[in-house]
Computed example of a mutant assay.
Amino acid sequence: MNKEHFLIELKIYLKPLNSQQQALILNKYETIFEERLAEGDTEEQIAKSLGKPRGIAEEILQEFDISVPEKRIERDGWQEIQPVVNNDYYYEEELEHPYEDPYRSYERPHHNGFTRFCQIAGVLSFNFLFMFWIIFAFIMVFFAFWLVGVVFLFSPILGGISVFTGFNDGAMFQLFASIFLSGAGIVGLLILTPLTKFFGKCLQRYLQWNVRVLRGEV
């Protein structure tokens, strides 16, 4: 089950709620999909981890003291749901088509040929003339810092070699200096690790945005 099918089925089971309540809940789960997609999960993995839409909807409807009886599956594959509502709850009749209201935002926008050409040309030009060099510079900076941090981390090996090859004041100074550099390397790597992960996530989201633009989803 992908994101679109998950949200459609959830909307169907949430029909006893009014449109505003449905929109808030659906926006919440759409945000969950977007965040986890940015982290590298697939739509199928996210939907499987969230659970069945009917179970989610039943838990939500219980908070409103609403029960949804099981109904047979119609020929078109959609399940008919007739809500049972208590006397003090107002039920707002909704349109039957699952793509109405908030689901219209999931449809891919339609652009003419000239607009698509401008989008693709603009994105490619912007990346080649500007973003490519910035991303390349950041990658080189991170690579240099990681290289220096690793060298600092293993610097006591060189200090130990200098002590064993010739024990003197200069060798001892090199050993203590290498130990200090090793500590600085550990601290530097601890700082670089979250920064590198953050840069990777930003780069991943930017690449996903480029793919969406090139596919005409924006």
Rank of each mutant, 00 (worst) to 15 (best):
F117T: 02
E80F: 10
R36V: 10
I139M: 09
E93H: 12
D76P: 00
R36S: 08
Q82H: 09
V123S: 05
Y99V: 02
F117A: 04
E35A: 13
L129W: 07
G55M: 07
F114W: 09
E94H: 12
Y103W: 06
I46H: 06
Y90H: 10
A23E: 12
S49Y: 12
Q119S: 10
P98R: 02
E70N: 04
Q22H: 00
I66K: 04
E58R: 05
E74S: 11
K71S: 08
R116S: 08
E59L: 10
E107N: 14
I135T: 08
G122Y: 03
S49P: 08
Q119C: 06
V84M: 06
I73T: 07
F128A: 14
F64W: 08
I73Y: 01
Y99R: 10
V141M: 09
D76I: 02
S67F: 02
E35R: 15
N127D: 15
A144I: 11
V123Q: 08
T42V: 10
W133Q: 08
F138D: 03
G40K: 04
T115L: 11
E80Q: 11
L61P: 02
P53H: 05
A23D: 13
E58M: 03
F64T: 04
F126V: 09
F117Q: 03
W146H: 09
E93I: 13
H110Y: 15
G51R: 06
G51E: 06
Y89P: 00
I134P: 01
S105V: 03
I25W: 02
S67E: 13
L26Y: 00
I73A: 05
K52V: 08
E39L: 15
D88R: 14
G113S: 14
I81E: 04
N127A: 09
N86S: 13
V68K: 03
E100D: 12
